[in-house]
Design a protein around this nucleic acid. Structure first.
Lengths: 194, 194
DNA sequence: AGTCAATTCGACTATACAGTCAATATGAAA
DNA sequence: TTTCATATTGACTGTATAGTCGAATTGACT
């Protein structure tokens, strides 16, 4: 009689647990969008999430673990936007252009997401590494096809990421100009010599 | 008999004061190069500077004031590098190119300076505003002369600053490629459509 | 060698924050 | 209604940091 009871109990637990965990994750996301993790306190998180301090430690080991979880979700959001491009576009430059525009549109329409990405770009996180790796794969392919003036992959990646990040930062401070994404993309392609 | 004494005393004071203040400023500069101001503690500063806590508060109101002082010195270092260009080069694109290269060479040869600049670029400081203003002045002039494909000054500034910052970040993580500055400059000029 | 204004020191108080834990609440199942 | 594994609570302890202040030191000048 014990077996079924225990499994069911655990399942109920997981559901309730998941809801509260999501609240904390959401609060953490908002706060990490406006300050670096070093400046984030557990008290601030639990206040924003509307839970008790003990609850935070029931779900996370500490702020680092929360930051890692937020980073993972951020990485998934990038993957979501990338999947379409990777499957449908065989041309590396078209793929890169599509992804660049997708990410930029998202940043413009979702400032919290944009702030979070900008903050995350400061400390080199796992997801930042992954993005740069994806980008370098496309750029290497394009360079091997002799379609770029730039020959150094690292320099090419810096150009794309640098312009993207700075345009995103600008879009958070000023009202984004119309066709911002298009203008930025054309500048990137010119810089790469595509 | 009092007048001269008091003035002389004050002068002696200013000299001693200046030495200790410089120590604290130096320590603060090192620490602000590796962490954001929100994550900086007075205890860490006084330990690095080798002075007592009270001494810090004798010279600065708090960490914000120290950060402002560091920012001001950083601004001066930029002005120093800019002065030559502003006086000798009448052409805005040549001026911009010269400054870009100067700043990049400095960043590559002085990693602490580079880290400090990168950190400062996160929060919009007074000196960041000033740099962008200088840059926009040159870009506006070039655009008015019809020498750039990019028409939007903000976009043009984002391109220059974005590539510069990202290349500097890269130079701190990887070993800088030979002719990094030249490559980066050519990419910027292509992006602007010069 | 004595004087004294300016500077420096570090112990001290107060507060903020991290992390723990015994008590309480929850809610599906019996 | 009662049971009980799980989840939640918030008071509590310990530590780190902010900021203060009276005492000690410094060093040019007499």
């Amino acid at each position: 009689m014990a077996k079924i009871d225990l499994d069911r109990r655990a399942e109920i637990g997981r559901e309730k647990r998941a809801r509260t965990r999501a609240q904390i994750l959401e609060a953490g996301t908002m706060l990490l969008a406006e300050r670096p993790p070093e400046a984030l306190t557990v008290d601030a998180i639990v206040e924003a999430a509307g839970v008790a301090k003990g609850t935070f430690y029931y779900h996370f080991q500490g702020i680092e673990e929360l930051a890692a979880a937020v980073g993972e979700r951020l990485g998934e959001s990038f993957d979501d936007l990338l999947t379409a491009a990777r499957l449908e576009l065989p041309d590396p430059i078209a793929r890169l252009s599509f992804a660049f525009t997708q990410f930029l549109d998202r940043a413009i329409s979702d400032p919290v997401w944009a702030r979070l990405v900008v903050q995350s770009s400061h400390a080199p996180t796992e997801f930042a590494r992954s993005i740069r790796a994806h980008l370098k794969a496309d750029l290497t392919e394009a360079i091997d096809q002799g379609r770029l003036t730039v020959r150094d992959v690292e320099m090419a990646a810096d150009i794309v990421l640098g312009i993207w990040l700075q345009v995103v930062r600008s879009s958070l401070e000023r009202r984004p100009a119309p066709d911002l994404a298009g203008q930025a993309l054309r500048a990137v392609l010119r810089a790469l010599g595509a």
